[in-house]
Simulated scan of single mutants.
Amino acid sequence: MTWTSRRRRPTDAAPLFVAAASAYGANVALGTAVAARVIDTRNFRWVHHALYIATCVTTGLAVSAAVWARPRRASRRAALALLPAAAPLAAIPYLGTHSRRHPLVAVVAAPFIVAGVVCARVPSADRK
């Protein structure tokens, strides 16, 4: 493996970024289905909460890739792209669930989660 090929590989933390995006996607899908009254979660409301916790934990683990994952530059770039998602994820529990703010703030995290996945999965290009 040459220096160039090492530098062009995706970060080894990419599965964490994909896991965070998957947990977020599942949570959004469930929340949307409940809001559209396709699914009634009165008897198992804990599933949405468990998905939220899974989203927060996997997002935190993916952001920690900035410290330990290789290649270092790609990992840091992916972690920095994902980091702003922490603010809306942290705000969601304090917004109430029956207002328009809850889904709007939840959607604010989406571009950062997607950017983190893209940066973690797409090999970094040489910058000269």
Rank of each mutant, 00 (worst) to 15 (best):
L80Q: 06
A90Y: 09
L83M: 13
A90D: 09
L51E: 05
P84T: 11
G96A: 14
R72Q: 12
A106M: 09
A65S: 14
A66Q: 07
R70N: 10
L89P: 02
L95T: 10
A65H: 04
P103W: 07
H98A: 15
A69M: 08
L61F: 10
A87P: 00
P93V: 13
A87K: 10
L82V: 09
T58M: 08
H49P: 03
Y52L: 07
V105E: 09
L89V: 02
G60L: 04
A78W: 00
V107K: 11
Y94A: 15
P93D: 13
V105Q: 07
A85L: 08
R70H: 10
R70F: 05
A79D: 01
L61P: 00
A50N: 06
H49V: 13
A87N: 06
T55W: 05
V67Y: 12
L51K: 05
A66E: 08
A78M: 01
A90K: 08
A62Y: 01
P71W: 03
P71R: 05
C56Y: 02
R70I: 01
R76S: 03
I53M: 10
A81E: 02
A86V: 15
H98I: 06
T58D: 09
A81Q: 04
A78N: 02
C56N: 07
A79F: 03
R72Y: 04
V107T: 15
S75D: 00
A62N: 03
A86R: 01
P88N: 11
A65V: 01
H49S: 14
V67T: 11
A65T: 05
I53G: 10
P103Y: 02
P103Q: 12
P93R: 13
A66L: 09
R101T: 12
P93E: 13
V105D: 05
R101D: 11
W68N: 05
L82Y: 05
T59V: 14
T55Q: 03
I53C: 06
H49T: 14
H102Y: 13
G96H: 13
P103T: 11
T58L: 11
A79W: 01
R77M: 10
P103K: 08
L82F: 01
A65Y: 01
A66G: 14
I92T: 05
L83G: 08
Y52Q: 09
A81G: 09
H49E: 15
R101W: 14
S99E: 13
P84G: 06
Y94P: 03
L83H: 04
R73I: 02
V67S: 11
L80R: 06
A86N: 04
Y52M: 13
A65M: 02
L80A: 12
R76K: 10
V107D: 12
L89S: 00
C56W: 01
T58G: 06
A79G: 01
C56M: 12
A78C: 02
A86G: 08
S75E: 01
A74H: 03
C56L: 13
A69I: 07
R70W: 08
L82A: 09
